[in-house]
Design a protein around this nucleic acid. Structure first.
Length: 922
RNA sequence: GGGCUAAUAGCUCAGUUGGUUAGAGCACACCCCUGAUAAGGGUGAGGUCGCAGGUUCGAGUCCCGCUUGGCCCA
C-alpha cells in the first residue's frame, strides 16, 4: 500500500511558490492594483474614517530617482499604509518640483550644443518639456517601488493652476505686508551685466592688490582703550574698490587682540597675527600695551579712512586667525558674510557699484571710476590721507564667470525680500516650532537654530525658469505696484496660460483696463523680470495642495499631520514651508516632522559616481525586487545614516525568504479549510494564535512610533522561533497524518489560517507585493473571492488575558524544556548509532512546578513537541538522559511510540501506530 | 572653521533611569532531516561596545578630549 498517498501533505499549488521571483512578480501585482484603481478604492473605503494626511515633499524633476529618493518615498509609504491599516483614511498626493536652475542649465547645455540662443519663451518651453520627461520617469519608478498615491494627478509646481496659486500666495504676503524690496550682494558679471548663480562660477588664479588700511578710533563707549592716544585698527583686503562701501570692522568675539604701540600710534590687531602684520607693513619695533578679547570691542566706532562717517566694530565668527589682521573689512554690499553681519547690526547696503562695474554717486568722490581702476585710485587716496600701511600684489583664486571667462564681483542689487521681523514673524515661528512633534527630537534644535539665525528671505532670482514675480513698475517712476488687484490679474493670466504668459504679454494686456498706479497715478507699466526662488514654490505647497483651491480633490485639513523628509530639509523645505505657513495662516504647516538620514555605501561613505559606490534603486528592483529594497529600508535605522550596498541588500533578501517560507507553509496547510469550521482549538493552536496576538500588539505599537525596524525584526523572529522552530514541527504530524476532517486537523488549520492572516497584514505596509500575493493566494485556496489586503485593518486585541495566562505558562515550560532537550541531545548524537532525536526516549527530570506544568500534556504530545520518540518525566535536579527508543517506527507517520504495532496490509506486514491504524480504518 | 549627529560581533540592528558571564537575525562552520526540500531543524564559533582619560563600589550606558563618517553652513 502506498501510505504516502494517504497523507495530507502541503499542496504546492495551494500556496505561494517558494521562489518569489519578485522582479517579475511585482509588476504583475502592480498591474492588478492599477487596473483595480486600488488607491481610489482604498480612499473610498475609508471615506468616513478619520484622516491621516502626509504632505509630500516634491523631488526635483531633473534626473531619474536615486536610492535616497527611493528610501524617502518608501518610508512615506510605510507610514501611510500602516495608518491605513490602523483604520485611517490616508490620502497621498505626490508632488514634483519643476522650476529652477538645474533644469535650466541642463536645457541650456542642449541649446549650446546645437548652437542656438533661445528666446525666454523658447527656453521656458524646453525647461517644461525637460521637467515633464523626468516627472514621468520618476513617477513610473516610484510606482515600481510599490508606492500608492494619486499618481494620475500629482501636484507639479509648473502646472498652470499651481503656478497661479504660487502667485496668490505672494499676494497674501503682500496683503499682510511681509514683502519689501531691498539691496543684497549678488555674484555679478560686469561684462555680461547679469547676476550669476554659484554653479556658473569657476575659480582661476588672479592677482589682486592687497592693502593694509588703518581706521582711527572714533568713539569708545566702553572705555576699554581709555588713556591711549592715536588708536587705530587695521584691516586687510584684496578688493580696494569695496573700501568706499565699508561700514564696519568685524572682530571675533572670543579671540584675543593685542593693542601694540608703534611710535606714537596704537594698533589693535589679532594677537596671533601681530608679528605677521608688523613684518608686512614694516614696523621695526612695537610693544604690546594691552590685550583684549574681541567681545570688548563691541559697539566701539572707528572712522572711515576717507569719508566722514563711522565704521562700527561688529562681532563675527567667520573671522579667522589665518589671513589679514583678524579684523575684517566689512562692506555689506560686497560679500555674503558682510551682508548678514550688516543685517544683524542694521548697517544698510550702499549701492556703490552699478551694473557695468562703475562706482556710483554713493561712492562719493569715486563716482565714475571702473571698479578695477580703484586698485590705483582708491589706493592713492588712502595713501594721501595716511591710512595706507601697505600695498602689494597678491595671488589667489578668484571667481570668474563660466560663460565669458571674465572676473566677477559681488555687488548690491535690488531684490525682493520676505521680512521675518514683520509682525514678529520670527518669534511666532519659534513658538510654533515648540508645538510640532519632531521625530527624532534633535530635529527641533536644528530648525530652531536655523530660524533664529536666518536672515530675511530673499525670494527673487534673476533667472528665466520660474514663476515670474507678479509686480509691475510705473514706467517713469519705477515705483513698484504692490496691489492685490494687480497681482490677482496676473494670477488669472497664469492660471489660464501659465507663468510663461507673464513673460510674453505686455503689462497693459494683463492689468485691468484703465488700471492706475495706486501710489503715483501712472497708467503705463513695465513688468518685473525676476522670478521667485524655487524654495518659494515648494514652500507654498501645503497651501496650494491642502487648501484645495488648485484642484478640489487635493483638499485636506491644514496643517498636515506629517512631513517626512531627509534631515537636510531643516534648512530647506521644513524651513520655507514654515515661513509661508506662519505668514499666511499663522501656524506651522505640519503637526509632526519625521526626518531620516542619508544613504551611504557599505562603508558609511557618501555615494558618488566618482567612487562608483552608487546603488541604483531601479536596478535593485530588477535584481532583488522592490520588497527587498523596502525590507532594507525597514531594517535600517533611518534616524541615522543608512548604509546600502549589494551585500546588504542580499542579506535582507535572505531574511525575506525566511518570512516568505513561513507564510508558504501556513497557507500550504489550508486546503479544505473554511474559516468558520472550528469552534474549539487544541491548546497548542490556541497558544500559537495568542503568540501571534502578542506580536500584533507589539507591531502596531511600533508602527505608531514609526519604528519599522522593530516590526520587521519582531515578525522575522516570530517566523523563526515560534513558527519554524516550534509550531511547524509540532503541527506537521497532525496536519499530514490525521484524518482530513478530524477536529485536531481542523484546529491546526484554523491556527494556521488565523496566524497567516495576522502575519500577512503585519508585513503588508513593508512587503507590499508579497503580502498581496499571499493574501490573494490564501483566499483563493480558501475559496473566498479575494480583495486586496490593504482594505484590512490590523487585528488589535487585548493581550491582558494572554500575558501570564496558564496556557502561556504551560508552553513557556515546554519551550524551556525543549531547549534543554536540544542542547543535551547534541553531545549524545553519534553514541549508539543515534543521529536523530526521533530515535531516542528522553528521560527528563525537572523541578516540581515545571513537572506540574508539563504533566498537563500527554507523553504523546510532549514527544511531538520535543521531536523525540517518547518522553518520561521525573521530579528532581533538572537533567535529561537519553536511551535508544525500543519502539518500532510507524511506516506512515514515522513516529516511534509504544502503540506502534505490526499489522498486515495488502498481504504485507507493516508497523503502524494506533492513530494511523484508525485513520486507515485498519 | 561653526551648528546638528553618529560610532556595539563580518553585515543589519537591540541594549529602559549606570548593576550579575553584552543580546537577536543574516552570513559562516559542523550535524540532522529529505513529507515546508534551490526549504526546515539542532549546535557552535564570532565583540578589550571607535581611541584615550575621568566620575563611581561598579560604565556600552554619565563627563572631557581625540579620531573617523554623515547632513547643513562658512
Amino acid at each position: 500500500m502506498d501510505f504516502k498517498s494517504t497523507l495530507h501533505l502541503p499542496d504546492a499549488e495551494a500556496t505561494i511558490p517558494m521562489k518569489a521571483n519578485l522582479p517579475t512578480l511585482e509588476p504583475s501585482i502592480q498591474q492588478i492594483w492599477d487596473s483595480e484603481a486600488i488607491y481610489h478604492k482604498l480612499q473610498e473605503a475609508r471615506k468616513d474614517c478619520p484622516s491621516y494626511v502626509l504632505h509630500d515633499g516634491p523631488p526635483y524633476t531633473n534626473s531619474p530617482i536615486h536610492i535616497g529618493t527611493a528610501m524617502n518615498k518608501i518610508l512615506k509609504d510605510f507610514v501611510l499604509k500602516s495608518r491605513q491599516m490602523m483604520g485611517f483614511r490616508t490620502p497621498y498626493v505626490p508632488g514634483f518640483d519643476n522650476h529652477g536652475l538645474p533644469i535650466e542649465q541642463a536645457v541650456m547645455k542642449k541649446f549650446v550644443e546645437k548652437k542656438i540662443t533661445p528666446t525666454i519663451p523658447e527656453l521656458r518651453q524646453a525647461c517644461r518639456d525637460h521637467a515633464s520627461e523626468y516627472l514621468a520617469i520618476q513617477r513610473d519608478q516610484f510606482k515600481r517601488l510599490g508606492i500608492f498615491g494619486l499618481w494620475e494627478k500629482p501636484y507639479t509646481t509648473m502646472d498652470f493652476r499651481f503656478e497661479a496659486e504660487i502667485v496668490r500666495v505672494f499676494r497674501r504676503l503682500v496683503e499682510k505686508g511681509y514683502v519689501y524690496k531691498g539691496l543684497r550682494p549678488t555674484l555679478w558679471s560686469p561684462t555680461s551685466r547679469t547676476a550669476l548663480a554659484d554653479t556658473e562660477i569657476e575659480y582661476h588664479d588672479h592677482v589682486s592688490k592687497a592693502i593694509y588700511v588703518r581706521f582711527p578710533l572714533k568713539s569708545d563707549p566702553n572705555q576699554e582703550l581709555a588713556g591711549l592716544d592715536n588708536v587705530y585698527t587695521v584691516i586687510w583686503t584684496t578688493t580696494p574698490w569695496t573700501i568706499p562701501a565699508n561700514l564696519a570692522c568685524a572682530f571675533h568675539p572670543e579671540f584675543n587682540y593685542d593693542v601694540v604701540k608703534v611710535g606714537n600710534d596704537h594698533y589693535i590687531i589679532l594677537q596671533d597675527l601681530v608679528a605677521k602684520v608688523a613684518e608686512k607693513v614694516g614696523w621695526a619695533e612695537y610693544t604690546t600695551v594691552k590685550t583684549l578679547e574681541g567681545i570688548n570691542f563691541d559697539k566701539i566706532e572707528f572712522k572711515h579712512p576717507i569719508f566722514d562717517r563711522s565704521s562700527l566694530a561688529v562681532m563675527a565668527d567667520y573671522v579667522t586667525t589665518e589671513d589679514g589682521t583678524g579684523v575684517v573689512h566689512t562692506a555689506p554690499s560686497h560679500g555674503r558674510d558682510d551682508f548678514f553681519t550688516g543685517q544683524k547690526y542694521n548697517l544698510g547696503v550702499p549701492n556703490t557699484v552699478d551694473e557695468r562695474g562703475v562706482l556710483t554717486h554713493e561712492a562719493g568722490e569715486f563716482e565714475g571710476v571702473f571698479y578695477k581702476n580703484c586698485d590705483t585710485v582708491v589706493v592713492e587716496r588712502l595713501q594721501e590721507v595716511g591710512a595706507l600701511l601697505s600695498v602689494s600684489d597678491y595671488q589667489h583664486s578668484y571667481p570668474y564667470a563660466e560663460r565669458d571667462g571674465q572676473p566677477v564681483i559681488f555687488r548690491a542689487t535690488e531684490q525682493w525680500f520676505l521680512s521675518l521681523e514683520h509682525e514678529g514673524l520670527r518669534g511666532r515661528m519659534l513658538d510654533s516650532i515648540q508645538d510640532v512633534n519632531w521625530v527624532p527630537s534633535q530635529g527641533q534644535n536644528r530648525i530652531e537654530a536655523m530660524i533664529r539665525n536666518r536672515p530675511d528671505w530673499c525670494i527673487s532670482r534673476q533667472r528665466p525658469w520660474g514663476v515670474g514675480i507678479p509686480v509691475f513698475y510705473g514706467r517713469k517712476s519705477r515705483v513698484p505696484v504692490l496691489d492685490p488687484v494687480a497681482i490677482d490679474a496676473v494670477a488669472n493670466l497664469v492660471e489660464a496660460e501659465g507663468s510663461d504668459a507673464w513673460f510674453i504679454k505686455e503689462a497693459a494686456d494683463i492689468l485691468p483696463a484703465g488700471y492706475v498706479h495706486p501710489e503715483t497715478g501712472e497708467t503705463e507699466f513695465d513688468k518685473e523680470t525676476d522670478v521667485l526662488d524655487v524654495w518659494f514654490d515648494s514652500g507654498s505647497t501645503s497651501l496650494a495642495v491642502l487648501e484645495g483651491n488648485v484642484y478640489p480633490e487635493w483638499k485636506e485639513n491644514w496643517p498636515a499631520d506629517i512631513y517626512l523628509e531627509g534631515s537636510d530639509q531643516h534648512r530647506g523645505w521644513f524651513n520655507t514651508s514654515l515661513i509661508l505657513g506662519q505668514a499666511t495662516r499663522d501656524g506651522a504647516p505640519y503637526n509632526t516632522v519625521l526626518t531620516h538620514g542619508f544613504v551611504t555605501d557599505g562603508e558609511g561613505r557618501k555615494m558618488s559616481k566618482r567612487l562608483g559606490n552608487v546603488v541604483d534603486p531601479v536596478k535593485a528592483c530588477a535584481d532583488y525586487g522592490a520588497d527587498v529594497v523596502r525590507y532594507w529600508v525597514a531594517g535600517t535605522d533611518y534616524a541615522n545614516d543608512v548604509p546600502c550596498s549589494d551585500p546588504i541588500l542580499k542579506q535582507f533578501g535572505e531574511s525575506y525568504r525566511n518570512i516568505r517560507n513561513a507564510l508558504r507553509f501556513l497557507i500550504g496547510n489550508l486546503k479544505g479549510h473554511t474559516a468558520d469550521s472550528v469552534e474549539t482549538l487544541l491548546p497548542i493552536d490556541q497558544w500559537f494564535i495568542e503568540q501571534a496576538d502578542l506580536l500584533v500588539t507589539d507591531c502596531i505599537d511600533a508602527y505608531e512610533r514609526f519604528d519599522f525596524g522593530t516590526v520587521m525584526s519582531s515578525v522575522h523572529n516570530f517566523c523563526r522561533q515560534q513558527l519554524s522552530a516550534f509550531y511547524a514541527d509540532a503541527v506537521k504530524d497532525r496536519m499530514y497524518c490525521d484524518a482530513e476532517d478530524s477536529a485536531e486537523r481542523r484546529s491546526g488549520q484554523q491556527a494556521c489560517y488565523e496566524v497567516a492572516e495576522k502575519l500577512i497584514k503585519l508585513i503588508a505596509p513593508v512587503l507590499v507585493h508579497t503580502a498581496e500575493e499571499s493574501w490573494l493566494k490564501m483566499h483563493e485556496t480558501l475559496g473566498v473571492k479575494p480583495t486586496s489586503v490593504f482594505f484590512e485593518t490590523f487585528d488589535a486585541v487585548s493581550i491582558d488575558e494572554i500575558e501570564g495566562s496558564e496556557l502561556q505558562q504551560r508552553f513557556a515550560a515546554v519551550i524551556a524544556a525543549k531547549q534543554v532537550v536540544n542542547s543535551s541531545f547534541e553531545p549524545y548524537k553519534g553514541t549508539d548509532g543515534i543521529k536523530n532525536s526521533q530515535d531516542v526516549v528522553a528521560k527528563l527530570a525537572v523541578d516540581a512546578t515545571e513537572k506540574q506544568l508539563l504533566e498537563t500534556f500527554t507523553a504523546d504530545e510532549l514527544a511531538n513537541f520535543f521531536k523525540v520518540s517518547w518522553v518520561e518525566l521525573a521530579e528532581g535536579e533538572p537533567a535529561v538522559t537519553f536511551v535508544k527508543s525500543p519502539y518500532n517506527e510507524c511506516i506512515r507517520s514515522r513516529v516511534r511510540r509504544p502503540d506502534v504495532a505490526e499489522v498486515e496490509v495488502d498481504g504485507e506486514k507493516v508497523f503502524l501506530s494506533a492513530r494511523d491504524r484508525k485513520v486507515l480504518d485498519l
